[in-house]
């Protein structure tokens, strides 16, 4: 069953304000339940937040020296990559797996049977992604800062870059996760199906491997996808300006970042709107 994302609340309201109010109530209800469910799965909370910290600790202990001739520790560079990877996991991977599960266990079908405005479901997902991404990013920054001396963004302008890269990156990756959730045949296969493209992107986008050791062809190819630009955005927020020289375009290209992420946001939105199903595979 193909449904469009936005079905307006059509309870023949006497006033438009009633409809807007009902929509707001439904959105808040979804957000509350999503966030509550996340925090009540204590093991998921702990491991989601611990993963990037553990990775940073590992990478920082393997590469414990400064980048030659800069006085900047390798951990500073790795933090930028792990921020991008962490945001991609909490948005893209988590949503793809969670939605595939709700589609299989009938949760989506039940919601679709209520008068809930369909958009409210996605607003709820956006809220939980916002909360988890914010926590993930904050925990990594604080941990890196105090454990490995990672420097925080040095100016208000850099903080601004940090914030919009996080928001735009998380949004576009979320929509791609929603689109991908229709692909796996069952909830069990959702994680492997979502992990393969994500891991490939992480390796060619400079998340785990410094992008300077990738071939320009491969790294250029990664430029077609949002993750590389998220990583570049975090470098623009966290690294000293003279690091720009080693970038492919010899500078941090905020216009390209915004354009590529926004383009994938639109692609994800269109794909989700066309492919999203409220019932499981095989139900017609």
């Amino acid at each position: 069953m193909t449904e469009t994302l936005a079905v307006p609340y059509a309870a023949t309201p006497r006033r438009a304000t009633d409809a807007i109010r009902a929509f707001g109530v439904a959105c808040l209800a979804r957000g509350e339940v999503e966030v509550k469910q996340f925090f009540r799965s204590k093991d998921a909370v702990v491991f989601t937040l611990a993963l990037p910290m553990v990775l940073l600790a590992l990478l920082a202990s393997i590469f414990s020296h400064d980048i030659p001739g800069t006085g900047v520790p390798y951990s500073q560079v790795y933090t930028t990559g792990l921020l991008a990877g962490g945001v991609a996991s909490t948005s893209f991977l988590n949503l793809a797996v969670a939605i595939a599960g709700e589609r299989e266990n009938g949760g989506l079908k039940r919601l679709a049977g209520t008068p809930m405005p369909r958009t409210a479901y996605f607003v709820g997902k956006a809220m939980v992604v916002l909360v988890t991404c914010t926590m993930e990013v904050a925990v990594l920054l604080v941990f890196g800062h105090f454990a490995y001396g990672v420097a925080l963004p040095a100016s208000l302008g850099r903080w601004w870059t940090f914030v919009w890269v996080t928001l735009l990156g998380a949004t576009s990756m979320s929509l791609l996760g929603i689109a991908l959730s229709s692909l796996p045949r069952s909830s069990r296969s959702a994680a492997p199906v979502a992990n393969l493209p994500l891991l490939v992107l992480e390796f060619i986008s400079g998340v785990f491997v410094p992008f300077t050791s990738l071939s320009p062809g491969l790294y250029g190819f990664a430029g077609a996808f949002p993750l590389r630009w998220m990583a570049e955005g975090y470098r623009a927020a966290l690294l000293p300006s003279y690091f720009q020289r080693v970038e492919l375009g010899h500078h941090w290209d905020e216009t390209a970042m915004a354009l590529v992420m926004a383009a994938w946001l639109v692609v994800g939105l269109l794909l989700s709107a066309r492919t999203f199903r409220w019932t499981g595979r095989g139900e017609r």
Partner: peptide
């Protein structure tokens, strides 16, 4: 639409969410 869904209730065969 939604107003119709509000007038009828559905009890599904199984739900684990």
């Amino acid at each position: 639409g939604a107003s119709w869904r509000a007038k009828r209730g559905v009890v599904l065969q199984s739900c684990e969410d």
